[in-house]
Structures are given as structure tokens and as C-alpha cells.
Amino acid sequence: MYNHNFEMGNLVFIRNSRQDGPLHDKMKNQYMGPYIVVKQRSGGAYIVAELNSLIFGHTIAKFRVIPYLA
């Protein structure tokens, strides 16, 4: 797995964990976003916000976040 360190203001995708497992739908998106990184917590989780500045409801685990490349 990748080990990225994102800084405040970076654009990222979040892995849709509902698509993991044997019963996932291959036609649905595996990633959600893009989101903006607001802060990285001490344990490595991220606080992210939507592009309209609305903060995501909970922290996102580090392994679920990948860089957004435009």
C-alpha cells in the first residue's frame, strides 16, 4: 500500500469502503471525491472537507486516502 503524507489544502480521493468485499458492485465508484485536506490528526487520520468547505462528518483513516491528480 501507498504511504502518502498530505498537507493542508491538498486534494485527495477517499476509498469507498462499502465497495470492499465479495459482494461489491463493479460498476460503482471505488473512490469518492475530490476532497480538501483540512488537518492530519496525531494518529495519522485526516479531517477533510468538500470543495464547498463543508467538513466531512468524521475522520478518515490514512490508508483510505489517495492523491487527486488533475
Rank of each mutant, 00 (worst) to 15 (best):
M1R: 04
M1N: 07
M1Q: 06
N3E: 13
H4C: 12
H4M: 09
N5T: 14
F6I: 11
F6N: 00
M8I: 07
M8Q: 14
N10D: 15
N10I: 06
L11F: 13
V12A: 04
F13D: 08
I14M: 14
S17I: 15
S17K: 15
S17V: 15
D20N: 14
G21S: 10
P22T: 07
L23H: 05
L23V: 10
L23Q: 06
D25E: 05
D25L: 06
D25R: 01
K26Q: 08
K26I: 04
K26V: 05
K28I: 03
N29M: 08
Q30L: 13
Q30K: 15
Y31I: 02
Y31M: 09
M32C: 09
M32S: 08
G33E: 05
G33T: 12
Y35R: 04
Y35I: 00
V37N: 02
V38N: 03
R41E: 12
R41K: 13
G43H: 14
Y46G: 01
Y46L: 03
A49W: 05
A49K: 15
A49D: 06
E50Y: 15
L51E: 12
N52S: 07
L54I: 11
L54T: 12
I55D: 00
G57L: 10
H58W: 04
H58G: 04
I60P: 01
A61N: 14
K62C: 09
K62G: 01
R64K: 14
V65M: 07
V65G: 02
I66R: 04
P67R: 11
L69T: 06
L69P: 00
A70I: 14
